[in-house]
Every structure is written in structure tokens, then in C-alpha cells.
């Protein structure tokens, strides 16, 4: 699965750089150009939606990240083994 998100960072150049450095350590994440309003586009390449969510949660957990929003999700390879209900 491939997705992209926008991370809203605190308006501080040093703190923004710290976030960018941290993201660069993660192989599944690729960053775009930081906007003048401290919004950072990030592409996530993941095996499944769990990994997407984990990466998003990790981004959110960074001290200088205020919010992470999803923009684009491509999930052509549909999930196998979806859980089922016992209610039939």
C-alpha cells in the first residue's frame, strides 16, 4: 500500500529540521518539500494498512508534530484474510 500524509509541524526551523532528520531514519517514509507554513508532505510505502497506521502514529508521536492528516491512499492489493463475524 502507498499513502501520503501531511504532517503539521511547530513553526520553528530547528524543530522542523529535527522532525525531518527523524523521518529520514525511517525507510518506509519519504519526505517532500516543507511548506512555508510548516506543512510537510510525507509518502508512506507499507506492506499493509497496519504499517501505514503505525507510521502515521509514529509521526504523530513526534514532539514537534502537531497533527497528521491523510491525503492519498492506494490499496489495490486488497487485504487477504479479513476477519469474519460469528453472527451467522
Amino acid at each position: 500500500m502507498i499513502a501520503s500524509v501531511v504532517a503539521r509541524l511547530k513553526s520553528d526551523p530547528a524543530e522542523a529540521q529535527a522532525v525531518i532528520d527523524a523521518i529520514n531514519q525511517r525507510p518506509e517514509l519519504e519526505i517532500g518539500v516543507l511548506s512555508t507554513e510548516y506543512s510537510l508532505p510525507v509518502v508512506i510505502e507499507a506492506d499493509d494498512a497496519a504499517m501505514l497506521e503505525n507510521s502515521t502514529e509514529w509521526l504523530k508521536s513526534l514532539d514537534d508534530v502537531l497533527m497528521v492528516d491523510v491525503v492519498f491512499v492506494h490499496f489495490e492489493e486488497h487485504e487477504k484474510n479479513m476477519p469474519q463475524s460469528n453472527n451467522l
Binding site: S4, E30, V33, S35, T36, V43, D69, V71
Partner: peptide, 27 residues
């Protein structure tokens, strides 16, 4: 194809992050 999807994903996020950037949203 995967590279293409990634590029599309990045274009979409960039356009939202920076509305005045002029980035197109091909997807």
C-alpha cells in the same frame, strides 16, 4: 507503476501542504 503511484501520492500531499505551490494533482 509503483514509482508512479508514489509520485502521485507525493504530488497530492505537496499540493495540500502548499496550496500556492502550483503543484498539479494528477491523481
Amino acid at each position: 507503476r509503483r514509482q508512479f503511484i508514489k509520485a502521485s501520492a507525493m504530488a497530492a500531499a505537496t499540493a495540500v501542504a502548499n496550496p500556492s505551490s502550483g503543484f498539479a494533482l494528477p491523481v
